[in-house]
Design a protein around this nucleic acid. Structure first.
Lengths: 227, 227
DNA sequence: CTAATAGTGTCTATCAGACATTATTAT
DNA sequence: ATAATAATGTCTGATAGACACTATTAG
């Protein structure tokens, strides 16, 4: 319920946890802060909403990610909003946090030391409350990974079942049974064969698949995140 | 990444979708707007964040719900943030939306026509983008209802398995098999008997249970929201 | 007795997980 | 032939869903 004008509005920003897969490892994109507060500390890429330019908050984070990571057309989902008096030393602030899943090849940034890909399991301490945001993002990714086709967002449009299984394993952090994985994924009827094959050194060629339509949520679980 | 001060911040508000159970029906709390825009239209209860008074956004919505619905100590979860230039005719705005689950007896409001409980399946058209927020809230509630103990939040501290099943059925919008429900709920080991019984007219007394600890997410599904 | 809800027992189709086996390529 | 990955086959224990049955109260 938007209303009156007697109260000052808190500073509104957007931040993103950008996941990608590199060497079968789950990594995320960090940005080194040039200025105070938390100068030189790693932080999530983000920025201030431009009310004259951004149609909504999602617009704002897409603009910023295109600027900082040279990427567009990726999976993006709102994580939640982090707010309060304590999270920024400059005062009451509010950040709408997003989670993005990007294939490694779509990321294009200057490797000048201000942007870096870090392994999710060995992150440095981050600025603001960004450690907490990353924790929430990893939980969400793991959770959704077990009942949706989310991990396919890390892959190119065409991929093999082996690629897909590796993506799921990286997301869930656990190995999956080869046979069960294939059986269940194919039973979900989300993939279609392209007709082509990928050939590699000294091995049987693998069928290439692509995602069928817009369906992305399963009824059956794929891996076992827990017991 | 909170930052500079050259851009104006959008108006920041909080709104809540307050669910409750009345006559085994899923209902939600609406508030009739006294002023423009959308004067006389039903809307979600909400209000502006008071940066001098509220520690964070959750604090703000709790303050407002206590004022408008006379309730506190209920289940509250952030739904998401709705933002943009179009959602409020007065300009770029941002609302952090919450979902609350409250037992009917804990709701205490004046029945003066400005606050009302409406059946979820027959809602009037709401102000702003509140129809969309309610839709998202119902989806979330249904989704979580099938793999968590969320629906128990509608009940008092002590309840029978029959009460619990009715809560699940109201949330999921479908009848559940009596025997399977009991078997699965008890297997989850989330409940403990109080030792007492509830007696009713012409029927066998039912054991009273309470929720055990803070656990609330299942590994097994309870109802079938889909197939 | 009956009505009403509480609570238990059992059968069956399905399916996840484990594991074994066969297939196809490059060297 | 061998190494490597792709793809298929089969067995088994667990369990969701359906349904029938028994238990305990008030009137």
């Amino acid at each position: 319920m938007p209303a009156s004008n007697s109260y000052p509005s808190p500073l509104a920003t957007v931040d993103a946890v950008v996941f990608t897969l590199e060497d079968d490892q789950l990594k995320l994109l960090l940005h080194r802060r040039p200025n105070d507060p938390y100068a030189d500390r790693w932080a999530l890429p983000g920025g201030v909403i431009h009310v004259d330019e951004d149609r909504d908050a999602e617009d704002a984070i897409r603009r910023i990610l295109t600027d900082k990571a040279g990427t567009s057309g990726f999976y993006l989902e709102q994580l939640g909003t982090y707010s309060g008096r304590e999270r920024d030393p400059r005062g009451w602030s509010l950040s709408i946090a997003y989670m993005a899943l990007v294939p490694r090849e779509k990321l294009d940034f200057l490797d000048d030391g201000t942007i870096s890909l870090e392994n999710v399991s060995s992150l440095p301490r981050l600025a603001f409350d960004h450690d907490r945001i990353v924790g929430d993002a990893v939980s969400r990714l793991r959770g959704k990974g077990s009942y949706s086709s989310l991990p396919a967002s890390f892959l190119d449009a065409e991929f093999t079942l082996g690629d897909l299984q590796k993506a799921y394993e990286a997301v869930l952090g656990a190995p999956l049974d080869h046979s069960s994985f294939r059986r269940k994924v194919l039973a979900l009827d989300l993939l279609e064969e392209t007709g082509a094959y990928r050939r590699g050194a000294r091995m049987r060629p693998a069928k290439l698949f692509r995602l069928k339509s817009g369906i992305s949520t399963f009824n059956r679980t794929l891996g076992a995140p827990e017991g």
